[in-house]
């Protein structure tokens, strides 16, 4: 081991002095042989989902800031988007699916696989119902003569709900995959990361959706 004097000398060399190797902190990635420690993929996947959420927040934030500026330009032609009642039912469906998926996720940890399959199935179904409901709501709006070109309010409504629906459909892919694995009894421990990551992102999409809904209910 280096002496105390050389430690001091090296402090100026661009970093803190050598630490006790018995207490590895920072990183926690690969071990001494270059192999990653157990569970690293779970860890990186969950961090990755959080970073992905940052991307989505920025994306929706840009739409929102564009909206604020566009509306502030002189509200003469801003317009108003009538909200189909169906959207509230869709909200219920989305929130229910989140509850189902999360209960399923928790129950899987206790090893109750059959209950998991039922609950996850219910969550998947409610999620699909949300997407279907959104399509019907767009159809209803179009039926009332509200198109993306009608006025800026409607344009942003379509942009935001399309972007949200694209996120939902993208997240539905791993959710359906988990469903298939569960039905085939192939839900191995490694795949449980997919369960957790998909559920996490799904809750995030709930929050986004409620934000869009409140925005249009009270402001736009």
């Amino acid at each position: 081991m280096p002496t105390a004097a050389s430690d001091e000398l090296l402090t100026g060399s661009g970093g803190p002095p050598p630490i006790d190797p018995e207490l590895p902190f920072g990183g926690g990635g690969p071990d001494g042989e270059g192999n990653n420690p157990p569970g690293w993929q779970r860890r990186t996947s969950l961090t990755g989902i959080v970073v992905l959420m940052c991307v989505s927040v920025m994306t929706f934030g840009s739409f929102l800031s564009a909206m604020v500026i566009r509306r502030g330009l002189g509200a003469t032609n801003w317009g108003h988007t009538p909200m189909p009642v169906l959207l509230y039912w869709n909200t219920v469906s989305l929130l229910l699916s989140s509850v189902f998926l999360d209960t399923a996720r928790r129950i899987l940890r206790k090893g109750k696989r059959q209950e998991f399959t039922w609950l996850w199935g219910a969550g998947t179904f409610c999620g699909m119902a949300f997407v279907a409901g959104q399509f019907v709501a767009w159809y209803q709006l179009a039926h009332q003569g509200v198109y993306a070109t009608t006025n800026p309010s409607a344009a942003f409504f379509y942009v935001l709900t399309w972007a949200h629906a694209a996120h939902v459909v993208g997240t539905a892919i791993p959710i359906v995959m988990v469903m298939v694995w569960a039905l085939q009894f192939r839900l191995t421990p490694k795949r449980r990361t997919t369960v957790d990551a998909a559920a996490m992102f799904w809750h995030f999409l709930d929050v986004m959706w409620i934000g869009i809904l409140l925005l249009y209910r009270y402001w736009a």
């Binding site: 970093g15 803190p16 630490i19 190797p21 590895p24 902190f25 920072g26 990183g27 926690g28 990635g29 690969p30 071990d31 001494g32 990653n36 690293w40 860890r43 990186t44 961090t47």
Partner: peptide, 10 residues
């Protein structure tokens, strides 16, 4: 997440 043990940020 993938820094080696001892590789602190600084």
């Amino acid at each position: 997440d993938l820094r080696a043990p001892g590789m602190t940020l600084l």
